[in-house]
Amino acid sequence: MPQPLNYLKETASQTAGPYVHIGLIPAMAGFDIFEKNFSNVLVTPNTKGERITLEGKVLDGTGTPLRDVLLEIWQANAAGRYNHPADRSAGALDDEFRGWGRAGSDFDSGLVTFETIKPGAITDRTGRKCAPHVNVWIVARGINIGLNTRLYFSDEEAANAADPVLNLIEHPVRRKTLIATRSERAGKVVYAFTINLQGPEETVFFDV
């Protein structure tokens, strides 16, 4: 017998369940408990960058919006820098931007929104340029392990065409499942997205 390596094993995932709001966004469950709460607003008045709204739905295999889903997003700031010590890239940090937020879908419409800024292009540790994107993590009743995907921006065609992750997707027809569509509404920039859990338009999910 060789020596044992003695690594521990990761704890198994379990569904977040229908009442995920209690723990992560208690105001949506219908009560007020914490002095400080996390939310879907990532910006302060002093955050640098273009204000955008991310707005979308997560659809099940029948095309029905999930109304009990929770999304978290993690993104770089307007200079393309993550607010984390492992990111040593050249862009300036923004003290007014953590880069993370969470949102529950509306209990009636299933709509999910985030108020954030458009991230800058990212330079990976190997020096390659990556198109601006937002990392998304999805949990809900019926989802046994959190789903990882990304949102890219429809007005970044050239950067998207060169993005190393989008280019990993074998079928070009599936790349568009990660593209959020830009529009302007009452002077606000809105990027609309749809995440399909199943079906011919199934969103690309990543094993990260």
């Binding site: 046994n144 859990l197 969103t203």
Partner: peptide, 14 residues
């Protein structure tokens, strides 16, 4: 609940 909420394509390893 997992039946209609589970992706059917392979996850893309990243």
């Amino acid at each position: 609940s997992s039946v209609l909420r589970s992706p059917r394509q392979s996850l893309l390893s990243l």
